[in-house]
């Protein structure tokens, strides 16, 4: 956080003054002490957060209208929540393993994470099926529509994450590369997994308590 304070502080520099020039000439041309991938990931997370926040605002606004009928949460969603929490945890341990260059542990971790992510997605589809077979369609009530919309968007985010998980895993598996080579990718994927977990918990909590 001290870095972002740095940006604001730097806005008061006077680039034409002698003292400042001497300082500036030593500058490396980089504002944040992060890899460009990490900055990219953070930017994406900010944009996604804005998208989900706006949906939550729309949800809260729409909720107040007389025709709102709260939708029951299928029990399957609790299971899915468990799965996604587990996925996030295991990704954390995988990241620790890759930090310590433990090849086997990293490999198994990556497999497990992928398996859990796909299970989560399938679980969400089953939850949809459960709801639809009890007559809760998107058109029945707008509360249901919000549920389908939220789960779809969250799922799409996860599918996006799985693309990068797939790239990382296949890079790791290709011609005996080491955990070290994919350390950074694993770290970024793990951050993204935690982010999606938080998003899901917020959305699920929102739908649970309203």
């Amino acid at each position: 956080m001290s870095k972002s304070k740095g940006i604001i502080e730097s806005l008061f520099e006077k680039p034409w003054e002698k003292d400042q020039i001497e300082i500036d000439n030593k500058h490396q041309g980089r504002t944040l002490n992060l890899s460009k991938y990490k900055v990219g990931l953070r930017t994406i997370m900010v944009v996604s957060t804005v998208i989900f926040s706006l949906f939550i605002v729309a949800y809260s606004d729409r909720m107040l209208v007389h025709d709102w009928r709260t939708m029951p949460e299928p029990w399957l969603l609790w299971l899915n929540t468990g799965v996604i929490i587990l996925g996030s945890l295991i990704f954390h341990f995988t990241k620790l393993a890759s930090d310590k260059n433990k090849n086997d542990k990293t490999k198994n971790g990556l497999y497990l994470v992928g398996f859990l992510a796909y299970s989560f997605l399938i679980g969400q589809l089953l939850a949809w099926y459960q709801l639809m077979s009890s007559g809760y369609y998107a058109t029945t009530n707008v509360a249901n529509a919000f549920f389908y919309l939220f789960t779809t968007l969250h799922g799409l985010h996860l599918i996006g994450g799985l693309y990068f998980w797939g790239r990382t895993t296949s890079k790791f598996l290709s011609k005996n590369s080491k955990a070290e080579d994919v350390k950074h990718s694993i770290e970024l994927c793990a951050i993204y997994w935690h982010f999606l977990l938080v998003v899901w918990l917020v959305l699920f909590g929102l739908m649970l308590f309203t």
């Binding site: 730097s10 041309g29 980089r30």
Partner: peptide, 10 residues
């Protein structure tokens, strides 16, 4: 992140 050396924001 990718500016030339010496290129501060200001």
């Amino acid at each position: 992140q990718l500016r030339a050396r010496g290129m501060t924001l200001m």
